[in-house]
Design a protein around this nucleic acid. Structure first.
Lengths: 341, 341
DNA sequence: GTGGCAATTGTGAGCGCTAACAACCCTTGT
DNA sequence: ACAAGGGTTGTTAGCGCTCACAATTGCCAC
C-alpha cells in the first residue's frame, strides 16, 4: 500500500529513520535512559506509535542474557493449594514486568523435577520457583546444577535453596489447642501422605500440641489428600470407641470424613468434632461448615517472587533464607464442646 | 581449571571445534537434518555431551522467528474448571515441545483480554489460547489486531476465532431429562452469571429440554458461581411451594444449595432432588453425593492445542472452526424419584 | 579415466537488539 | 576567547544462531 509490498513488522531502524535519529537513541528511549532530550524522546515515541513498533524481545534477550521470564514448576495445578499459589506467583511476577512460564508435573519425583528445571533453563528463564511440597522433590533441588536462581515453595530446608512456606505446624497447633479447649480428651489425626512436607508439618504440630498439653497421642491414619481417602479414614475412625475429635490434614479429606460420618448417622459436631486445613472456598458450606486453617497462598506466591527477583536482579547467590507465612484458624460449626461437660 | 579462567556457557562454535566440524554441522545435528553422516553425528553428539552444551533459544528465536512458546490467557485459575483446562493445555503443549506462558486475569473485561494478548505477543509467543467464557471477552477477540494465531476456549462463535467448548446445552439436557424421567413435574434452575457463555448454554439446554417435554418453565435464579450465591438461592427456593427438583449451573453453587436445605431440614433427595454441573472431585462426597455433569477439561485443553498448533505450524489462517467436547451425566444420590408416585 | 550427480560439509551474512566507545554539542569559569 | 566538562547523539561490534549458497567429497555410468 504505502511504500513496501510486504508489510513486515517494523524494527528499531525503521523507527529511527522516521524520527530522524539513530537506532541507539530509540533504544535509549525504550530503556528509559536519562540522557535523552525530551524533545527527541517525544519524536521517537511518536514514531513508535506511528509505526506500531514493538521491540523484539528475542533479540534483546540474546544480547542482555536476560529473558524477563520466570519459570514455575508445580505439582498438579488442579488442586486448590498449588493453583492458588501459582496464581499469586503469576500476579506478582507480571506486576514486576516478568513473564511466567509453567510446567505442571503429574508426579513429583526427583527426576521429573530436575527435568522440568532443565526444560525451563533451556528456555532461558531468569529464575525458577519450584513448588516442591514433597521431600524427594525438595531434596532434588540440592543437586541442581543450573546457574539460574531457584526458590522453593513448601520446600522446607531440605534443598538448601531459599524457601517460602506456610507455618503448617503452628496452624496444626492452633487447631489442636482449639479442640482441646473445647474439652476433648484428645484429638485424632488423619495425616497427608508420608513424603509430603506439609503433611509432616501438620502432624508434627498436632503431636507437639498434644504433648505440650499432656494429652495422649493416638496413632494417626494416613490419607492421600483425596476426599475418598478421607472417607475411608472416616469409616475406620467411626469404630474407635470414645473418639470425639479429629483433625484432618486437609479440607478435601475432611469432606470425605464428613460424608462417611453422615452415612453412619454420626452427628458432627455433637458426637464428633472435625477440623480441616486449607480453607478452600467450599469449606464454609460443608455440612456442617468446617473449622479449618486458612493458608494465605497469595502471600506465599508474592514472597517467593520477591525473594527470587532480589536474586535475579542482584545476580548474586544470597544464600539460604526461609520466609514463613503464618496460618490462621477459622472456627466454624464442625467443632464444638464435648457433651461430657 | 582446564583452559579458560572464567567458565562461560559453551556455544555452538565450541562444540564444533571439539568435534572438528563447522558450527553449521552442529546446527544440522541439532535440527535433525537428514544429510549428516552418522559418524559425524555421533562425534558432534559426543562433543555436546562432553561440554554440556545447550542451545541458546533466544538466538534461535531471533533468526527463525519462532519462540516455541504458546501463551494462555485465562480467568481466575484458582477455579477448578480453568485450572483443569490450563493443566490440559500445559500437558499437551509440553508434549509437543512447546513452552507455556500464562496470564491469569482477575476480571475478564475486553480491555484486559486485549492487554493480556498484547503482553504475550510482545513476548513473541507463536500462538495464544484464550479461555474466554464471558461474552464480552469472547467478543474482544474479534477485534484483535495481532498476527499471532488465537484459539478460544468456551468462546462460542462470538469472536470469529476457532474455538473449543464443552457441549453445555447437551449436558443440561441430560440432567433435565434425567430429572423428568424420575417423575418431577418440572425442574427449577439456578443459573450462572449473565454474561457467561457457559451459563447461557446450560440455561438454554435446560429450557429447551423442558419445552421439548412440554413441562412448564419456572423463572431461573441467578448466581455468581460461588457457594454463597448457591446458598442464597437455596434459601429462596425453599419457599417455593411444590418444588421438587433443581438443576444448579455448577457444583459449587449446588454445595451452597445443599447447605441451605440442610439448615432448613429439607431432605435431599427425598423432598427435593438437586443436580449440579462440572463434577468437581468433591462432588462425589457432598451430602448427599451430587448428581452432576462431567466436563472433560483435559480433552478441551488437548483439542485447543491441537487446533492452535495446526495453525502455528502451517502458518495459515485456516478460518473458523468449532470443536465441541461432549459432556456426560453422572448420576449420584442427590436425585431421586418423586414421592408422588 | 572422467563427467556428472548426490551426499556431505563449510562459508558468509544477517536476524534485531544493546554495550562500549567516540564524537559532537553547548554551557560555564577563567 | 578558550579549555574543561557534562549532556546528548552516533558508530561500531557483536550476542549465538540459522539460512542460502558454495565447496568438497564419493560413487557410478559411460
Amino acid at each position: 500500500m504505502s511504500s513496501s509490498e510486504i508489510r513486515r513488522a517494523p524494527v528499531m531502524a525503521d523507527v529511527a529513520q522516521l524520527a530522524g535519529v539513530s537506532h541507539q537513541t530509540v533504544s535509549r528511549v525504550l530503556n528509559d535512559h536519562p540522557n535523552v532530550r525530551s524533545e527527541t524522546r517525544d519524536r521517537v515515541l511518536a514514531a513508535i506509535d506511528d509505526l506500531g513498533y514493538r521491540r523484539n524481545l528475542a533479540a534483546r534477550a540474546l544480547v542482555t542474557r536476560h529473558s524477563r521470564t520466570l519459570g514455575v514448576v508445580s505439582f498438579d495445578t488442579t488442586l486448590y493449594g498449588p493453583a492458588s499459589t501459582l496464581y499469586g506467583i503469576e500476579q506478582a511476577a507480571r506486576a514486576a514486568g516478568y513473564f511466567v512460564s509453567i510446567v505442571s508435573l503429574k508426579t513429583l519425583t526427583a527426576e521429573h523435577v530436575v527435568e522440568a528445571v532443565e526444560f525451563l533453563s533451556d528456555q532461558g528463564v531468569d529464575g525458577i520457583v519450584v513448588v516442591a511440597p514433597q521431600r524427594t522433590a525438595a531434596r532434588a533441588l540440592a543437586g541442581l546444577s543450573t546457574q539460574v536462581p531457584v526458590v522453593a515453595v513448601e520446600g522446607g530446608r531440605a534443598g538448601g535453596k531459599p524457601a517460602v512456606s506456610v507455618d503448617q505446624a503452628d496452624g496444626a497447633r492452633q487447631v489442636v489447642e482449639h479442640l482441646l479447649s473445647l474439652g476433648h480428651e484428645t484429638v485424632w489425626h488423619v495425616a497427608g501422605p508420608n513424603d509430603w512436607l506439609e503433611a509432616e508439618g501438620r502432624a508434627e504440630g498436632w503431636r507437639k500440641a498434644l504433648t505440650a498439653a499432656g494429652h495422649p497421642i493416638p496413632d494417626p491414619l494416613i490419607g492421600d489428600w483425596s476426599p475418598r481417602s478421607g472417607y475411608d479414614a472416616g469409616r475406620r475412625l467411626a469404630e474407635v470407641p470414645g473418639l470425639t475429635a479429629v483433625f484432618v490434614a486437609n479440607d478435601q479429606m475432611a469432606l470425605g470424613l464428613l460424608r462417611a460420618f453422615a452415612e453412619l448417622r454420626i452427628r458432627v459436631p455433637s458426637q464428633i468434632s472435625v477440623a480441616g486445613f486449607d480453607d478452600i472456598p467450599e469449606a464454609e458450606f460443608f455440612s456442617p461448615p468446617l473449622t479449618t486453617v486458612r493458608q494465605d497462598f497469595g502471600e506465599v506466591g508474592r514472597r517467593s517472587i520477591e525473594i527470587l527477583l532480589r536474586r535475579v536482579e542482584s545476580g548474586e547467590d544470597l544464600g539460604y533464607e526461609h520466609s514463613v507465612v503464618p496460618a490462621r484458624l477459622v472456627v466454624r460449626e464442625s467443632s464444638a464442646r464435648t457433651k461430657t461437660a
